[in-house]
Design a protein around this nucleic acid. Structure first.
Length: 409
RNA sequence: GCCGGGGUAGCCUAAUUGGUAAGGCGCCAGCCUCGAGAGCUGGUGGGCUUUUGCCCGUGCAGGUUCGAGUCCUGCUCCCGGCGCCA
């Protein structure tokens, strides 16, 4: 969430970035109204509480001095106020809830660096497109089985066999090993409490995009949620920052518009990067994160490009987002990473602070995919295929696969 | 899942039969000093209020009460024990 004080003092700025996000900026007026009502009600309640507190203190003094009769009269008086307070408290609770609900609906500030339209930042590697190249589906043939997956889990799932399964696992390990050089590896849960998912701001906005269980837990839509919550309600020493984590887990999304294939599936694999930084370092650290994620593609010798997304394409919690797309000869450009600076938006919800000379400050949180593995998998197959239908395994992956080539199926 | 014990500010520890959160460390500022340290003084949770000031704050959410760290209910996490378990 944004700092209410910021919204109150800069409603124009908030309207402005809502417009950039192509969202309804009238919500700001609604917010200002709710904020005003809430604060006015609270002021009335506060003065009543003050009266009660004064009376209470008098009652205490009277009782100590043995003046029971006078105390009794004061208690009677105070009782009336207490009744009023109770009614107003109930009312204020509702108003506070309304106020918070609307505050949570307002997305993060948009960074000044965010362009009007998608902006190409970098192109890397040589695009190699040949007429004879086949799609990953053709290449894998029976090693990729959508039918069995559909019969046990429904549409939007897949089964991999043999070298295909091994290659995906190799990719997971490779990405993790590259990430591990700079990020601490951590193994995290994929079932998460409502509060945790709320902290990352996936709730309430992304509710329909997530699976939930009968026990009320949500299936992780991205490791971003778990990694953020490593420090929920904690205070970090400034000298410990930046804290960098990486994790691999499967991620789960309902993907209502899922199409057949590996590109958009309900259960997919990603290695995630996450950083907690000081307020002054987050911009610098985001750039490093984008480089770290690109590093994997460079090592795999896959062509890719980096884009800076416009405001209307970035997540509500993000203030700026870089996307990395890998080139796959038949399937085309595939988004494999999204690196975002959430500033203090998630930290305010999750209450994550650091101590700077005794002063408590909200951390900045950054997240990035490193990478979306099914999509890198596709690019790998299509880029490394040979004319005879076999697929070479990149040198850096061979120690993970223990084979150098996937023969034509 | 059951039984018992616990959660107080950045950290550590107090608070009588319910009477309105005390102290220490650390940190910040000032004094002192060539400077640092020590020492001394003040300040160090959040919000509203331009001042004075007021409200809230003892894991979270409620309840009882004139008044709750303290009593009650639900939840949560930690510690110990039992149970279950790959």
């Amino acid at each position: 969430m944004l700092d209410p004080k910021f919204i109150r003092e800069n409603p124009e700025k908030v309207r402005n970035f809502l417009a950039k996000r192509k969202e309804d900026y009238k919500i700001v007026d609604e917010w200002l109204e709710k904020d005003k009502i809430f604060r006015e009600s609270k002021a009335i309640l506060d003065s009543l509480r003050h009266e009660r507190n004064v009376l209470s203190e008098q009652i205490n003094a009277l009782i100590k001095n043995g003046k029971q009769q006078e105390a009794k009269e004061k208690i009677e008086e105070s009782r009336k106020i207490a009744k009023k307070i109770k009614i107003l408290e109930e009312d204020l609770r509702n108003k506070k809830k309304e106020f918070l609900d609307i505050t949570f609906k307002i997305p993060n500030i948009v960074s000044e660096e965010v362009p009007e339209e998608e902006k190409l930042i970098l192109e890397y590697g040589k695009i190699n497109k040949k007429k004879w190249q086949k799609s990953y589906v053709e290449l894998l043939s029976k090693k990729l089985d959508f039918d069995s997956a559909a019969s046990m889990s429904g549409e939007g799932f897949f089964v991999l066999y043999d070298e295909a399964a091994i290659l995906l696992r190799a990719l997971i390990n490779f990405c993790l090993d590259v990430a591990r050089k700079k990020y601490r590896e951590v193994c995290v849960p994929v079932l998460l409490k409502e509060r945790a998912v709320f902290n990352s701001a996936h709730l309430p906005r992304f509710k329909d995009g997530m699976y939930s269980t009968t026990e009320g837990l949500y299936l992780s839509p991205t490791e971003e949620v778990a990694l953020l919550n490593l420090y929920a309600n904690k205070i970090i020493e400034k000298k410990e920052l930046p804290l960098c984590f990486t994790a691999y887990t499967p991620s789960f999304r309902t993907e209502k518009g899922a199409t057949k294939g590996l590109i958009r599936v309900h259960q997919f694999d990603e290695v995630e990067l996450f950083k907690f930084t000081t307020q002054e370092d987050s911009t610098k650290e985001l750039k490093k994160m984008v480089e770290d994620a690109s590093e994997v593609l460079k090592l795999l010798n896959l062509p890719f490009r980096i884009k800076l997304l416009p405001a209307y394409e970035i997540a509500a919690q993000s203030s700026i987002t870089y996307d990395i797309e890998v080139f796959s000869p038949v399937t085309g450009w595939l988004e494999v990473s999204s690196c975002s600076n959430c500033l203090d938006y998630q930290a305010r919800r999750a209450r994550i602070f650091y101590l700077d000379k005794g002063e408590r400050k909200l951390v900045h949180t950054l997240n990035g995919t490193c990478l979306g593995l099914q999509r890198v998998f596709i690019a790998l197959l299509e880029n490394y295929q040979k004319k005879d239908g076999s697929i070479a395994v990149p040198k850096v992956l061979q120690r993970y696969t223990n084979f150098k080539i996937i023969k034509k199926a």
